[in-house]
Design a protein around this nucleic acid. Sequence first.
DNA 1: CTATAATCGAGACGGTACGTCACGTCTTGAT
DNA 2: ATCAAGACGTGACGTACCGTCTCGATTATAG
Lengths: 207, 207, 207, 207
Amino acid sequence: MTTGDTPRRGRGRPRTPGAEDRILTAALEEYGEHGWAGFTMDAVAHRAGVGKSTIYLRWPDKDSLLVRAVAARTVTFAGIDTGSLHGDLIELTVRLLRYLHSPGGWAAIRVTFDGASSPERMGDFAADLTWAHSQYVAEICQRAMARGEMVDDLPTGVVSETIYGAAVVNALSERLEGRQDDEEAIRLRAAQIVGTIVDGLRVPQDR
Amino acid sequence: MTTGDTPRRGRGRPRTPGAEDRILTAALEEYGEHGWAGFTMDAVAHRAGVGKSTIYLRWPDKDSLLVRAVAARTVTFAGIDTGSLHGDLIELTVRLLRYLHSPGGWAAIRVTFDGASSPERMGDFAADLTWAHSQYVAEICQRAMARGEMVDDLPTGVVSETIYGAAVVNALSERLEGRQDDEEAIRLRAAQIVGTIVDGLRVPQDR
Amino acid sequence: MTTGDTPRRGRGRPRTPGAEDRILTAALEEYGEHGWAGFTMDAVAHRAGVGKSTIYLRWPDKDSLLVRAVAARTVTFAGIDTGSLHGDLIELTVRLLRYLHSPGGWAAIRVTFDGASSPERMGDFAADLTWAHSQYVAEICQRAMARGEMVDDLPTGVVSETIYGAAVVNALSERLEGRQDDEEAIRLRAAQIVGTIVDGLRVPQDR
Amino acid sequence: MTTGDTPRRGRGRPRTPGAEDRILTAALEEYGEHGWAGFTMDAVAHRAGVGKSTIYLRWPDKDSLLVRAVAARTVTFAGIDTGSLHGDLIELTVRLLRYLHSPGGWAAIRVTFDGASSPERMGDFAADLTWAHSQYVAEICQRAMARGEMVDDLPTGVVSETIYGAAVVNALSERLEGRQDDEEAIRLRAAQIVGTIVDGLRVPQDR
DNA sequence: CTATAATCGAGACGGTACGTCACGTCTTGAT
DNA sequence: ATCAAGACGTGACGTACCGTCTCGATTATAG
């Protein structure tokens, strides 16, 4: 996920090992503190204790730096398997909400939407990220279908859209209302969202 | 929601009638084509065939212009009442998807997320918009609860988050995948989303 | 000699009248104080109380600015006519030495030599300046020839080369030795130079 | 005048024999082609087929390299003695013109004037060079005075300024006018310059 | 024959200035 | 009073070069 891949083939002074990380961290911090406006390459360089040239040696421009900074801090939600559809989705949603409520997660959201507007500049990060998210849900659903727990006449994409979407909008409204949701609030919201999706809104008629 | 408030009668040359509209249109077009970076006041002025002063006489800065341009194209989803929860939500979701897949709707999404990141500059619009969306769902849910059609131990905010979120992410993935959903695709997706929310994912056990 | 020629045809805000002068003055001062290294566009802009764009609106780059700054302060030596060859040349040489010993004159020398090395960048200033200098001498010589005061089998170019060259090298050695020639020293040197050229070095044999 | 001073025997890999020369040559060529601006250490290193460290092991900075490059190609005009003032000066002037019309001589002129502008960085070379030139003339003049051939109430500095200056300005105008003086043109000009200085401009009154 | 050490080509590094571009302000003459 | 045009001060952009540094490779002397 880093720029990496450089096999370091010898000739010339090698790139300073720590620099990559320090720059990405500085970038995320600056972005978090000042937003896109006020997100300055000079400030990032200064905060990372690095010259601008060192940054531009690694990333071609401001957009790319931010995208990579976000990508480098992307978390994975793979490997969830509690044994039940409800349990799996709860676990996934809790982790998702936790992430999206963090500065890095919010930055990922913004970069994703920016990326969808100008794919030539922000590259494939957005597509990769949303595809990864849809996969987590797909795996959970496939297991649930195999267990006969879940209807099988529904593309899993709808489920991932619904869960991912609910989490994104929840993070959005947290920011707009100036809330700071704690772990308890997150767990409650996850339960409500998953409950709606698994059990539906209809009043149970006979049970 | 218009520029308004300043009736601007009195002495002197009156403001050129068409200008307001041409500027807002030009702004949306530029934003749609080039994204936030590459969205230039000079370009907007040029495309609208207008001097920069004419713009700055009406809006204080770039953010405000963009917010107003988006707001001027905002649509309302009020007044839906088909008689059933399922019917209401389908109608709402169809309209929502149609809007968010349009250039103006996509711009509204982006402005909303930008606004949440820098509320001091353009936060009010985002808050107003999301609040309005949550109200449409709230009204529908309250009527459904009164009819006994829907569980009443769930805050309506969860429902609006889920529907609005699913629609937003659907618009996002349409762009990322380069799709161009037609009316049929939209109706199908709306049915799937609302089905999931109203009926849930569980296999009906006895019916 | 200024950038000028702009007939100021109306449309748009006119260029700030004083700016041109303030920038040229600031440029010469910065150049005089810090030399070519340490001659910074930002510093010139700051000293002139002007933005960099205002400078780049008028001159395409650093070289051009310096050339024009020097050119704008170029002095003329036209109109010398004391009635005798000796008197004319003394007057010319005194003025020339005075000028070349001043900061502006020294800057003119440097720009001239730079210009001869890269004519595509420094343009025609160097050629114009040396041509003008040769003309002053040519006029003086032609009058002297007409009066029968001077040999007429010699191109006047040699005379101007000799006088201009002596003055340039005199200014050079003043700087290298850290001298600060006063008016008296200048007049003495002028007399010696012109004496050498008019009367020659040979011992007068019979007079 | 070479890099010298450090005999550099002892252990370790000895300095590559040809490097010194290749670097100085490359430096003069780059300087000649692009002038001071556009005279780049990287370009010199590349043209000499050498790493930058190899250059910086020998000279502390750009100024020093250039000064040394010029100094290494400096020619001497010592040992002229034809028996007459006129003959000596002709010989000196011819050699001087030949040198100053060559790339190395022109570079020496430029370095001299640059050095006079920032003596702390490269002043010594300029002072040494001009002092050497004045000595050649001084010797010639002293012999001429001893022979009673030349007036003795004139400091020899004036003569050297005049001759050196005329040669410098002649080289300048050759470049400005795009001429390429051949040996014949040089001899003619030398004769004219020396004639002016030895015999003066006055019409011989009785002969 | 091995250890030590200076030099080499390559090129990344922190810094500083370049020339460009956009923002939001301003100043003009015209409407 | 508003308009189109466009110059203004400010400040970030991405590039280029300086002089330093770090690397692995090379080439000598010293033990």
